[in-house]
Each structure stands twice: as structure tokens, then as C-alpha cells.
Nucleic acid binder design. Structure first.
Lengths: 300, 300
DNA sequence: ACCTACACTTCGTGAAAACCGAAGTATACG
DNA sequence: CGTATACTTCGGTTTTCACGAAGTGTAGGT
């Protein structure tokens, strides 16, 4: 019989990447979690983690198991939220999935308008790979997916995309790094260390085309599927990184980096994907209208 | 923090319909399960079951919670199977969903051919409402769905139906009940107590049309979405019930009932619904070919 | 090279929980 | 109205879980 508590610890450790961080989240001590996970591994005679340096890393088996656990406890959290909400009753659920390539502050600004609706919404927000989010959209476990690309056609799922807006991109670096690559933008990018979005993103290929046109060859030193992670590396001075221009001010402020330059020749778009049930969800309406009115007003 | 063990007990009790049966499955005593579920209810201050007679029934909250639990532990079971299978490695997964209106012995006969393939399959079989199965098909948590109707068009899911076969239906009753309604078939059905498939099934409406044509008004005393349940009631002598003619012999033998008559004017069809990935799953091939070759050979 | 900080592990103990036997209550059925 | 069945309640017992103390191994600075 599978021990769901142990599996839960496994999940938290896997997603936080370390036992210590899992402890903070679970209010437990490391030896407890370490022990319980060892027991789990023992039960099935298979290692889920392996030590790499002083961190833990998923083994092959662990990587296989993680999506199952993910699904289980994601559902578990929703169930718990539902059980707790029972008494006060009937606020409308609004379940949003966010593709991990979308910068968090964009997401925040997109979703913020839904918080101020007259009818109280209960918002659930989840981040994942686009494909998985769309699957959940199909079975109506999500009401809306926010992504940087419209609905792909190769999936066996119907969905309707709605463009929220489009904007140019800006380049950022720590001041020290920026000083090392002086000169006019964009020529200053020549040979500079660059962090770029992963191969699966839309903006990646546009960016590369633009570099070719400008006859600039930056030195790509990192690829990231998750924009927050990319920005974290950028903040440490590893390389120059990009973000949509609408959040340029915020990036400069929050990460303490310098704006190197910006272009509208490369644009990033954002889409709201829904199944478009007969009744439009108030949350979706708020997001699409809010995006048009406030976030992307300066653009066509 | 949600107690997953208690939730698991809740799930088993809900799906078996009784604590005692859950005990058999979990190797526990009733007082344990009863107690643990009470604790769960206490934690969230909400009843999940209510006593009806000496059985338990889901409350409104329980009904809301069940699909979540279903999802969780279904996934949990798959995970466990995967973890166990790890050592011997690489047998092809074949996950089949069966709509509950399809008689079990038909399902068995359809699936049986896959057991004898040269390449070893690991078959997972799940029974549920058609709609839920199709949702899981869309996100590739299932490879095939077997149903009595082709892919409905109103869902936001793509799927491809393939007709497995078609056959007439037969009427059955206990000998005692049959004796009470003597005479030639189908006139003997006039005024006889009848158990029929639920309103959502395809055969239901065909059956009613046929009765109208024959100018027969049976007395409908029960509707069932689950064919096994209908047959159980039929076995107890509650009423006359139907089943596809291909399994007539088996129904007579297994339930100890008499065959009253059969007609090919009302037919029941069975379909295999898949997402038709590039590569045809060996299990799907085996089922469609097996159906054509063995089960429904006598028909066009 | 060595010291310190950090992350995970091992071991033994104590507390919490889960579980069971016995007995009790309530319902269905003949 | 008695018997069988299903769920509950109430102790006591067993098992599981969690922590403190101490240990191993790695990273990084001096």
C-alpha cells in the first residue's frame, strides 16, 4: 500500500529541490523527511533521489514518478481549498494556468484586474508547461491558460486563443556587465554573454532572426524555459537577459539591473486560451479587457 | 494539512459504497475506517457521508469531493504500478477506459485478444462515465475508450471512433417471472416489468421506438446506467432485462435466468475511441481485429 | 591544507496516530 | 419480535512519525 504521506514529502522535496527548503514548507526537521523518503525508496526498492554534491537530484525513476505526484497533490490542494471554502460558500472559481515562459510580473498585471471585480472570485493559479495546462483546459480543470503563443494545432484538444497584446523587448544587465560592453545599442551586444529563452518559446526564434539581421553574434551562455530563473541568473551578472518592454521599469527596480536598450523589431505576444463555453467567465473578461485597457495600450 | 490516508479511506468507502466492503479491500476493521473518516470530517467541519438506513451515502460535500479523490488515487495507483514494474522494465502500457453501460463480458471478450499478443502488454482497465473517460483520452492518460456510442461532437476534445461491431438484443428473466408472462415473444412483454438502460444510453431510445412500433407497453420499473447493476436486479427477479445477443448464452449460464426472446430490430453497437496517434497501439489493433474476427462475425 | 558552513544521514527515544477488541446503537427482514 | 447486518463508541495496544544528538560528506573561504 502506497504511503501517501511519504509520497507527499517526495513531491515537496522534488519541487523545492532540497530537503531543507521542504522542511520550511512542511514545518518538519530534515531527518524526518530524509528518513521518510528513504523508507519510500526502500518500499519499492528503487532510489528516487541521488546525492549530487550536497544537493539532491532526481533519479530516472524519480523523474518518472514526479508527474504522477504532481498531479496527485495539485488535485489534493484544490480539494483542500474546496473543503475549507465550503462554509462561506459560492464564490466563483477561476482557475488560471500560466505557461512558465511568461514573466511573472506580466502575469500579475494581467490577473490583477480580476481581484477588483464586484463579484468575488476565488483564483487558483498554476504554473506548468503549456502542453499540460492545455490538457487540463480540455477537461475543464482550468478556465484559462496564459501563454506566449496561441493554441497549437497539433494537439487533440480544442481551444480558442485570444491575443492579449504585444510589445517589444528590452535588454538588461548588471551595471558591471553593461560597463564591460559599452557602445551603442544594439552593436554593444556583439560577443556579449547572453541568456535567452528556451528553444520551445516563440520569442527565441524571433530573437535569433533579429540578431542575424543586425549581424550581431552574441555569445549564448544559457537557455531557460522559466523566465524567473533566467532573470535570477541575470541578476547575478551571468549575462545579459531580456524581458518585455512593458515591464522594463519594474525589472530595473526589482533586480537592480541596468537597461541596455530596447527594440520593437522583436516582439513578444501574450495570449489567453480558453474553451469558450457558452458563458464567458467573468475572470476571462476582466483579464482580456484589462490587458487591452492598461497593459498594452500603446500598441496597435 | 490534508491527511491523505484518511482521504484514501474516504475514497474507498465512497466507491465501494460501504465501510465493510472497504475493510475487505484495505484489510482493516470497520471501527478504524469509521473513526478515521469521522476525524476527516471533523478536521474540515463538514460531513462527507450521511447514514441512510444502515448504509452510508455521500452528502453534497462528499459528492463534490469525490471526483478530486478519484483523480488522486487513480493516479496514485498508476504511480504505484509504475514503481513496482520498474525492475522488469519496458512492457507496453495499454490503458483502456470502459463506459459503464457496456456489459462486462463484452468488454472481457473485446480485451481478451490483447492478452495473447507476442509483445507483453500491461493492461490498465478503468470504468467510468463516458465523458470523463474521453477527457482522459484527450490528455493521453488513456489509450482507448470502449463505449456503446461513437465520439460525441459536443465536447472540446478530438477523438476518432471505430465501430467494433453491432448485434441484436435479447430479453431475459428469472424462470418464475417468465412463467408469469407467457405467450409468444414479443407480445408477452406487454405490461411486464422491465429494467432498461439509463436515459443517456443509445440503446434506450431505440428500444422505446421498437416498443412503440410493436404496440407494446412494458412497465418500466427501473433505469440503470450500469449494465452489471441492471443484471443483478434482473437476477433477483425484479424485472425483465436485456443484453446483447452475442452474450446471451453467457448471461443465461451465469445469472441462471431464462432467455425470453431476441430481436435484431433493435441493435446495440460498440465503438473503440482513440486519439489515433501516428503509430497504432498494438492493443488497439488487437481489439479491433479480434472484434471483427470473433465477436461480431455473424453480422454485416 | 585547514577551518567553517551547509546539506543530508543515522540512531535512539518519546509522543502521536492509527488500529483493534469489546460492546453498543440502529436498521432491515423474515 | 428475533436475528443478521452495518455503522459507532470506548478503552487499550501497536505502529508510525518526528525530533534531538551526533555523524558523514561537500563547498568555499583563508
Amino acid at each position: 500500500m502506497l504511503n501517501y504521506r511519504q509520497l507527499h514529502y517526495f513531491w515537496v522535496v522534488a519541487r523545492t529541490g532540497s530537503i531543507v527548503r521542504a522542511c520550511e514548507q512542511l514545518n518538519l526537521t530534515p531527518q524526518t523527511i530524509s528518513g521518510q523518503i528513504s523508507l519510500l525508496e526502500q518500499t519499492y526498492g528503487i532510489a528516487l533521489f541521488q546525492r549530487v554534491g550536497r544537493q539532491l537530484e532526481l533519479t530516472e525513476a524519480g523523474r518518472k514518478a514526479l508527474p504522477y505526484a504532481e498531479q496527485m497533490f495539485q488535485t489534493g490542494n484544490e480539494l483542500e481549498a474546496m473543503l475549507r471554502a465550503q462554509p462561506d460558500e459560492q464564490q466563483i472559481l477561476f482557475r488560471v494556468g500560466v505557461a512558465d515562459v511568461v514573466p511573472k510580473s506580466i502575469v500579475y498585471r494581467l490577473i490583477a484586474p480580476t481581484m477588483e471585480l464586484s463579484e468575488p472570485l476565488r483564483i487558483t493559479c498554476r504554473e506548468d508547461k503549456l502542453e499540460r495546462l492545455l490538457a487540463d483546459l480540455a477537461i475543464q480543470r482550468l478556465d484559462l491558460v496564459i501563454s506566449d503563443s496561441p493554441m497549437p494545432t497539433h494537439l487533440d484538444i480544442k481551444g480558442y486563443s485570444q491575443k492579449l497584446g504585444e510589445c517589444g523587448i528590452s535588454f538588461f544587465a548588471t551595471q558591471a556587465l553593461a560597463d564591460r560592453h559599452p557602445g551603442a545599442f544594439p552593436q554593444c551586444l556583439q560577443g556579449a554573454p547572453l541568456l535567452i529563452p528556451g528553444a520551445e518559446t516563440v520569442i527565441r526564434s524571433r530573437l535569433q532572426r533579429w540578431f542575424a539581421e543586425q549581424q550581431i553574434q552574441p555569445k549564448i551562455i544559457g537557455e531557460f524555459d522559466d523566465s524567473a530563473l533566467m532573470q535570477a541568473f541575470g541578476q547575478s551578472g551571468s549575462g545579459i537577459f531580456i524581458a518585455p518592454s512593458v515591464i522594463a521599469d519594474e525589472v530595473v527596480r526589482q533586480y537592480g539591473v541596468a537597461l541596455i536598450g530596447q527594440t520593437d523589431a522583436v516582439t513578444e505576444s501574450f495570449y489567453a486560451i480558453s474553451v469558450e463555453r457558452k458563458v464567458k467567465h467573468p475572470g476571462i473578461v476582466a483579464i482580456t479587457e484589462g490587458a487591452r485597457r492598461e497593459l498594452f495600450t500603446a500598441l496597435p
